[in-house]
Simulated scan of single mutants.
Amino acid sequence: MRSIQFRSLALACAVAVGGAAVVGCTTTRPQDQASTASTRASIDAQVDAALSKLYDTVKGSREVVSSSSGVLVFPAVVGASMGIGAEYGRGALRVNGRTQAYYSTTAGSIGFQAGAQSKAVIYVFTTQAALDKFRSSKGWTAGADATVAAATMGANGSIDTNTLRQPVVGFVLTNVGLEAGVSLSGAKITEIRL
């Protein structure tokens, strides 16, 4: 009889502790809101810097972005690998120069590789239909949900006009400039709440 009472008491305590833990997880403290605001401000500042670098590096890119339906910028996609690679970054979607939402990108790869690198990845939605499809998705994968044309440079140093006819154009910037011959297929992009 006594062991049944003890078990009941132990179960009641476990339920109470579990309930308190759940309440603690769902409560937003004032400092959490400040942290979230500073995270958004940090991402926005990094997006501004990545776009400036794009405009300085790729002739005609400012006009391409300003005439687009939207631009998704991941200022620092960090990748590391040792045979199997993984990449992760956070960024923002901008429409008419204003941030609309925040996103994360992840990608994986298998093959002979070693090391770590950081790059900026920028997706330009040249049509409203491509942007709408992206925004309505619950998780968008480059190459599966839409073909992403990697930006290439023409002989005159400007963006190749055939590339600009695609609904989604991708730019990959490294420390040395625009990365050529890169594939963006397989990058999974998901909206995050900040």
Rank of each mutant, 00 (worst) to 15 (best):
C13S: 15
A50I: 04
A150G: 09
A86M: 13
T190P: 00
I4A: 15
W140Y: 15
Q5H: 14
G111L: 11
A101G: 03
G83N: 08
I43P: 09
K53W: 00
R62M: 08
K133Q: 12
V73M: 09
R98H: 05
L178Q: 03
G70I: 09
S137H: 08
L194C: 03
V78W: 05
Q113H: 03
V172N: 01
T147W: 05
Q128E: 10
D44K: 03
L164H: 02
I189G: 07
R98D: 04
L173Y: 00
T127I: 07
S158V: 00
R7L: 15
R90L: 07
S52G: 06
P30S: 06
T163Q: 00
S68H: 08
R165F: 00
A49W: 02
G186I: 12
K133I: 03
Q166E: 04
A130E: 02
A14T: 15
T163D: 10
L173C: 02
P30V: 08
L194Y: 14
T126W: 04
A101P: 01
W140R: 11
Y55Q: 10
R7C: 14
R94W: 01
V168K: 02
Q113L: 04
F125N: 06
A37R: 12
R165M: 02
K133H: 12
E191Y: 03
T147M: 13
T39A: 13
T126R: 15
V95H: 01
L164D: 00
G60V: 03
S158I: 00
R193V: 13
S109C: 01
D44Q: 07
D48K: 08
V95L: 03
K188V: 13
S183R: 12
T57N: 04
Y123A: 14
Q117V: 07
L54F: 04
V172W: 00
A45F: 01
G157I: 02
N162R: 05
T141V: 15
Y103A: 08
Y123Q: 10
Q31L: 08
G143E: 13
